[in-house]
Design a protein around this nucleic acid. Sequence first.
DNA 1: GTCAGGTTTTTGGCATGCCAAATACCAGAA
DNA 2: TTCTGGTATTTGGCATGCCAAAAACCTGAC
Lengths: 243, 243
Amino acid sequence: MPASKETKASPTMAEADIAIVRIAPETSFKNKAYEALKEAILKMDIYATPEPVMLDERALSERLGVSRTPIREAIAMLEQDGFVKTVPRRGIVVVRRTKTEIVDMIRAWAALESMAARLITTTARKKDITALRDFFKDFGADRRPEDHIEEYSKANIAFHQALISLSENQVLVDMTNDILLHVRGYRQLTIGRKDRTATSLPEHLGIIEALEARDTELAEKRARDHTLGLAAYVEAHGQELFT
Amino acid sequence: MPASKETKASPTMAEADIAIVRIAPETSFKNKAYEALKEAILKMDIYATPEPVMLDERALSERLGVSRTPIREAIAMLEQDGFVKTVPRRGIVVVRRTKTEIVDMIRAWAALESMAARLITTTARKKDITALRDFFKDFGADRRPEDHIEEYSKANIAFHQALISLSENQVLVDMTNDILLHVRGYRQLTIGRKDRTATSLPEHLGIIEALEARDTELAEKRARDHTLGLAAYVEAHGQELFT
DNA sequence: GTCAGGTTTTTGGCATGCCAAATACCAGAA
DNA sequence: TTCTGGTATTTGGCATGCCAAAAACCTGAC
């Protein structure tokens, strides 16, 4: 089926004049396949079934309408990311993380975020720090986080990502996002957030206050302890779901 | 020339009896190519020439004696690692890091290592911590590090890796090793180590002492500050070598 | 000598097809 | 029914070959 020979995106842009940016690199099938597969993997609930989730090159090839070559390259990339593992003559399996791995990842996340907090106290602009409060402006004593879990959870992630971005250290940003992608989906994490929403909001505000006060050590400590708290929760309550 | 059809590793193990482990998965050409290219890239001095270093699929294919397919898959993997970047109809270029990126990476390293130190104070065994001193047993007032840069530099890397391993957090270990691979080769780093050898040894010993004393906060601080010191050095002294 | 215009070469992107290792299946013996 | 071979099928690994976009060359006019 892979053979859509219809000269994709014919350069018939005719008399299109200026403002041509570069037309559009039209990302390769390899990259399209990579994005598509990655999204699919993140969307599925890996931990829902006991049996390992398998992928099939040929099936994916047909589904995506391209040959196996770009699919294989995309798989190789996903394997580098740690999302899948291809076993020689057996198949491609979507990697399932153990509780220990998730806890380790959350601790690494804590390390990166506390460093971000440290850096922020010395370089970020006051207004950008204060703007972090906006993520929680819809929550308070009258509208408690625990009553709007889903919404609060989104604000939560957005807050952490915005916080780390303020460090202006792209390496910290990228590494943390990687971790979040792997950690997301682990059921116990969501439950953990739910159980911890009560203390979560105050802790977040505490971090922001320390940042505003340019108190490097305190900001670092609060950021670290907040996320280590989540790690401790998962370690204590999250039972192994299908080793 | 990719076509060595000589049935590799013929299963003529004849009357070999027990103790058969699994013969040998004989890693794929894709993985062999990946390892070979990775090593080659790490070995070359990327920052030595002004012109970007380019790789050619076909040339590599001949050099390694395999077809382009596994080579391309290996390249895709290396691109995920951030070692190369393939530009559509231009070629594959070995990525060169800017000073800013190197500094950012070192700071991330500091974050991960200080977290490792923190964890070590609560879980590692006394003897394992003390064993860290062995990396520097050949150095002292009579045999100063600055007089044996090369050797001390190796001990230095080994120490940091051993330290992080003691955290028993594989994520920290893997992430740090990744960073070290990228940072290694940046000339200013070596120079930085040379200029800093005098203070380096005492700082290392200080970290070990804090770990032995199970002083979590102090160990974390010393580990962090030690590596942040290197980052500051590179930021201050490492000029941009070929942007 | 310079430069426009056209031709050849180079380079990554893909589609195909075949191979061998594993596995799934199936029939026949006990 | 159960177990043993043996065969068909499935699955990832690779080698090839062709395509189109770019870049490198070449050539002839001015």
